[in-house]
Write a protein that binds this DNA or RNA. Structure first.
Lengths: 337, 337
DNA sequence: CTGTTAGCGCATTCAT
DNA sequence: ATGAATGCGCTAACAG
């Protein structure tokens, strides 16, 4: 049973002064007699006084809380990113409400709703693989609540975004495969709707073109990022008349699953088929063979996105151009290529 | 710039009725004319009205928000657990504020502070490896805010707890090693202060005793769970005059690191040294050799802890015995043993 | 330096 | 079925 929480009135009554004075003492207002302040602070401490966010939020119309919505939580990518976001938020005196949409559009909409109800001062979001309608996010704009996209961004909304050099990273990965003598390089991509996939695909195409490796459309496949489906596409690749000698996967989880499946068939990695992922997930260095992948600064992405959000919150006029910050990627060569 | 948020007053004014009526219509109060209700609902929808949590919280003295504090976030264990907690919370109409203390006592205290300020209706917590003082949590009790511990619990506080059959799981693991013919079984444990470590150690001891395998105190080591320190203890084990032929590790991350280190030395796993972990982390099946481990129902733990918290919130009188729920564990035998 | 007053948005009594 | 009035805890504007 929740007990009575001490209020400034309790302190005021006890000390025989007005609650305004107590409030002033507590918030560090300069014009308060030092003795009074000390007495208040001491009693507040003793009574384990706790400011009530509701009343303050009601007054100030600010919650000092940011929301973050991520599509999933089970791989290390988003949790790590959240750590970065949380760090930066905390430094700035903001709290973070986290929710994950489980790759479901419905859940994402509902989570956004929750963020709104909780009066977040701003929203960080990476959309699900199935999000095509952005009404629930445009609502934030209409309400004047700033948004920042990261990782999986929405192209049609003009808000700050944080992405990485997807195209450059993909380019480096594919060029590396070519340098290893691979010529039939497949690309197992994600949903075409995600711009992140478009950019990585562009890097793939560019690398092929630069080195005069002909593009074979049989070797380009899109899938919905449901890990259990990787099997279908790996089988498809392996059963092609001309089997690919490398697969550039859209992300590390996909690549790891591909490695697992290919190992089962007895094919050698990387001799028969090389595999490259994207992200440098924690697991990538642990599996056998260790995974060649494109590293992205995950925590940094979280920090940067949060900073962009804070920038918007501080800025009263929203008449500035929405920046898109692009972070560096780096090819990490391991044993799978 | 945050725009004016529509309030019930805006709706009332627009419709030429009183805000009480609007409030009643919105909350589904029975005694309101159907036509009025429809008009209100329609306009509210049109104006994209959003209830203001602050004012409601201020009135009802309930935030309909739960807090969860976990010691870390980078391995899959806690994120998965949080998914379970979030599911159950959502079903019950509660939101979840998540924070991670980065295995730092200081941060944990500060996070608890934040939860208090945010007026959470209840707190779920798994303590850091260095938490020995529980004043910050007892404060919740004094304020009448329910707490539930999970995974890493505090023995000295009488509140509901969710743990798994640590002792039984550890027993099964060690018994399995003995069945495999291992006799010098080491145990790399965590901080002695964590009861979870005590229980797993108890299982280890019991299994040895049951099978008349003499206990050698050289083979029992406690460490602080900082992964980079695993190296020290693995080296210690390997350099003993009589090298152990198996290591039962306190958790999967530890075991995975141990495998990595032992592979570097050229020793064979499991022939020279068998390794067993605890948790069945996502990675465990992917590494080489795949890790034998004790599975625990992670999501279920999150759900159960949340349920116990909701139980307390609903219950007005707190005069019932704090239950400790113990979930089942299961040995998963793979190639490392 | 301090007290008084008003009001943030809403649910809820008490009237009507 | 509806309106008017009250108060949740706090800060800020206005008096002293």
């Amino acid at each position: 049973m929740k007990k009575h929480q001490t209020t400034i009135f309790d302190i005021a009554k006890e000390l025989g002064i007005s609650k305004s004075t107590v409030s002033r003492a507590l918030t560090g207002h300069p014009s308060v007699h030092e003795q009074t302040r000390d007495k208040v602070l001491k009693l507040a401490n003793q009574l384990e006084y706790q400011r009530n966010m509701f009343s303050i939020g009601l007054m100030k119309k600010a919650s000092h809380t940011l929301g973050i919505i991520v599509p999933e939580f089970s791989r290390s990518f988003f949790p790590q990113l959240i750590i970065g976001a949380q760090e930066r938020a905390k430094e700035a005196g903001y709290n973070l409400i986290i929710s994950q949409s489980d790759e479901s559009y419905e859940t994402e909409v509902s989570n956004a709703q929750v963020m709104l109800t909780h009066q977040v001062d701003g929203l960080l979001i990476s959309i699900t693989r199935e999000t095509n309608n952005f009404e629930h996010l445009k609502l934030f704009q209409r309400k004047g609540i700033p948004i920042v996209f990261f990782n999986r961004v929405c192209d049609e909304m003009i808000v700050p975004k944080v992405i990485v050099e997807d195209q450059e990273g993909a380019f480096a990965a594919v060029e590396h495969l070519i340098a290893r003598g691979k010529r039939r390089i497949a690309h197992l991509s994600g949903p075409e709707s995600l711009s992140i996939c478009k950019r990585r695909k562009a890097g793939y195409m560019t690398a092929l073109a630069k080195h005069q490796v002909p593009f074979d459309e049989d070797l380009l496949v899109h899938y919905d990022l449901a890990i259990n489906k990787v099997k279908i596409y790996v089988n498809y690749f392996l059963n092609l008349k001309e089997r690919p000698d490398a697969i550039f996967c859209i992300n590390d989880p996909t690549a790891i699953e591909a490695i697992r499946l290919i190992k089962e068939t007895g094919l050698r990695i990387p001799e028969d088929i090389a595999i490259i992922g994207f992200s440098n997930d924690f697991v990538s260095s642990l599996i056998e063979p260790s995974l060649t992948t494109v590293e992205q600064p995950i925590k940094e992405m979280g920090r940067t996105a949060t900073q962009l959000l804070l920038d918007q919150i501080d800025r009263d006029v929203a008449d500035w151009k929405a920046p898109t910050v692009v972070l560096k990627t780096k090819l990490i060569v391991r044993n799978s290529s």
